[in-house]
Write a protein that binds this DNA or RNA. Structure first.
Length: 415
RNA sequence: GCUCCCAUCGUCUAGCGGUCUAGGACGUCGCCCUCUCACGGCGAAAACAGGGGUUCGAGUCCCCUUGGGAGCGCCA
C-alpha cells in the first residue's frame, strides 16, 4: 500500500524535550548516524554582533574549519551541521511549489546541544526516517525548517519525504492568529456549542475548495481532498460563517441525534451543568424533546439552543423580560383569560387543538391572531420570542401551560 | 536587515489564455411567507491591488511597485 505515513503534528513533541543524558533515547539517536555527518563544532558562545541592527544572530562559523584539537579544554561543544555555503537548497513542496533557498542564508544549525541532547531539527529528521514517514504536512511557518531539514537528510544520504506546507489561519482582523486573536483549542469550540462535523466542514473549506461545494460530510471531504488544490494564501477565520454552517448542521441533524449531541455537549456549555441538573430534576427532558424541532430552527449553536430552551425549566411565577412585560396590556390579559378558559375545556392537549382555541378567541374578540399569540407567548415563556406558540403549549403540557397563563391573566384585577 | 511565500466582492472561495457583461457561499440590504424570532423563497448592492510587458487575446503567463504573511535560537 502506498498510504502516506504522517509523523507527529508540527509542534507536538513526541518525547521529553531533553532526554536525560545517557538515556536510551538520546543516545540511540546520536550514536550511529552522526558518524556519517560532516561535522562542525562550535564554541559555547555564539557571537551575536548584529542584534542591535535588528538582524538575526547567526553562527559565524568560527570553528567550522578548525580541527577538533583546537577546541578549548574543559568546554562542552555543541555539534553543528557543516552545511553547504554555496548553491541552494530546494524544497519541492506539494502546496508551495518549488521553493529555492540560497544556502548562504542558512547557517550551520545545531544538531546536538553541548549537553549531548539532540535538537528538534535532528530529532524530527531521524524520527521521520525511522518511522518511514512519507509525507510531512504542516504550516508554512515550517517552510524554512524544511530547507534545513532537507540539508540534514542530504548529509545523511536519506530520501527527503514529500513536503506540503499549508497556509496559516489569520484572525478576523487579518493579524496572525494568536492567543489574543482567537487562537483557541477545540475544547473552546465545544464550549461555544459548535458541532464537530460543522467545525470540520468549516475548517476544510478554509484554504481548500472543491468547486462550489460548501457543505459536505467528513466522508466526502476525505474522498474529495487533494493536497494539490490547497491554496497558498492565508485565510481569515470567520466565526459568523462558522455559526451559519453550524446552524445548518443543527437543522439537518435528526432530532434524536441532535438531542444526543446536545446531552453530551451540555456539561461543557456555560451554565450547562445547572441546566442539566434542572432538566433531570424536573423531568422536563420529554418537554425538551418535544420542543427541539422548533428550537433547533432558531439556534445557530448549542449554546443558543440551550438559551432558547430556558423557558422549559423556568419556574412559576415566570420572570418577565421587559419586552415581554410590555405585551401584557390589560386588554391582552383579558384575552389571556378567555384563552385560558378555552384551553382548560380542551379534552385533548395538542398543538392543533390549542391553535383552534386561540384562533377562535382572536376571532371572537375581533383581533388578529398576533394580538392573542404574543401575550400568550409572554405568559408562557416570559419572552418576546420563542418557537411557535402552539408548539410551546404542547411542549409545556396542560398543567404548566394553564398555570402560567393564569398567572398573567389573573393580574387583571390588580390593574 | 536578509530569505521565502501570498494578493478575485467586507469574508471564504470558483476561475487553471478566449466559454468572465467574473460564478457560489457567509454577511449586508429589500420583498415574500408569518403568532414573535428564526427557517425558507425571490431579488439587489459588492471584487480581478497598481503599473509595465508577453500574446491576435490576460483575472489567468513574466517583471516591478505597493500591501500582507512567515522564517532567521544549544525552542519546538
Amino acid at each position: 500500500m502506498d498510504r502516506p505515513r504522517l509523523g507527529r503534528r508540527a509542534g507536538v513533541p513526541v518525547r521529553p524535550r531533553r532526554a536525560p543524558p545517557g538515556s536510551r533515547g538520546a543516545d540511540a539517536r546520536r550514536r550511529p548516524r552522526l558518524s556519517l555527518l560532516r561535522l562542525g563544532r562550535s564554541s559555547r558562545r555564539c557571537a551575536r554582533p548584529a542584534q542591535a541592527e535588528g538582524r538575526a544572530p547567526r553562527y559565524d562559523g568560527r570553528w567550522r574549519d578548525r580541527p577538533a584539537s583546537d577546541a578549548p579544554e574543559g568546554r562542552a561543544p555543541a555539534i553543528r551541521l557543516k552545511a553547504p555555503t554555496e548553491g541552494e537548497t530546494v524544497v519541492d513542496d506539494l502546496v508551495q511549489g518549488r521553493v529555492v533557498i540560497p544556502n548562504k542564508d542558512l547557517d550551520d544549525l545545531v544538531l546536538l546541544r553541548s549537553d549531548g541532547t539532540p535538537t528538534y531539527m535532528l530529532a524530527v529528521v531521524v524520527d521521520d526516517h525511522d518511522m518511514g514517514v512519507t509525507h510531512v504536512i504542516r504550516g508554512v511557518d515550517h517552510l524554512t525548517n524544511a530547507a534545513r531539514q532537507t540539508q540534514i537528510y542530504q548529509a545523511l544520504g536519506w530520501d527527503v519525504p514529500k513536503m506540503a506546507h499549508i497556509p496559516l489561519i489569520h484572525g478576523p482582523d487579518g493579524a496572525k492568529l494568536s492567543k489574543r486573536h482567537g487562537a483557541l483549542g477545540v475544547e473552546a469550540y465545544r464550549e461555544m456549542g459548535f458541532l464537530p462535523a460543522a467545525l470540520r466542514n468549516y475548517l476544510a473549506r478554509l484554504g481548500w475548495s472543491h468547486g462550489d461545494d460548501e457543505i459536505f460530510s467528513t466522508e466526502q471531504a476525505v474522498e474529495w481532498f487533494d493536497i494539490g488544490s490547497v491554496g497558498r494564501s492565508a485565510a481569515r477565520f470567520d466565526q459568523v460563517k462558522l455559526s451559519n454552517l453550524n446552524g445548518h448542521y443543527m437543522r439537518e441533524t435528526p432530532d434524536a441525534d441532535l438531542l444526543a449531541a446536545f446531552r453530551t455537549a451540555l456539561p461543557f456549555l456555560p451554565g450547562g451543568e445547572a441546566a442539566a441538573a434542572k432538566l433531570d430534576a424536573t423531568g422536563r427532558w420529554d418537554a425538551f424533546a418535544l420542543a427541539l424541532p422548533g428550537l433547533k430552527e432558531r439556534a445557530k449553536t448549542l449554546v443558543e439552543l440551550l438559551d432558547g430552551a430556558r423557558f422549559l425549566t423556568d419556574e412559576r411565577p415566570l420572570a418577565m423580560e421587559p419586552a415581554a412585560e410590555q405585551l401584557l396590556t390589560p386588554e391582552a390579559r383579558s384575552l389571556l383569560a378567555a384563552t385560558h378558559q378555552g384551553l382548560a375545556a380542551l379534552p385533548e392537549w395538542s398543538a392543533a387543538d390549542a391553535e383552534a382555541v386561540v384562533r377562535r378567541v382572536a376571532e371572537h374578540a375581533g383581533v388578529k391572531l398576533g394580538a392573542v399569540a404574543q401575550p400568550l407567548r409572554a405568559a408562557l415563556t416570559g419572552r418576546k420570542t420563542s418557537p411557535g406558540i402552539f408548539d410551546v403549549l404542547a411542549a409545556l403540557g396542560r398543567e404548566e401551560s394553564l398555570g402560567r397563563i393564569e398567572d398573567q391573566a389573573r393580574q387583571i384585577q390588580k390593574v
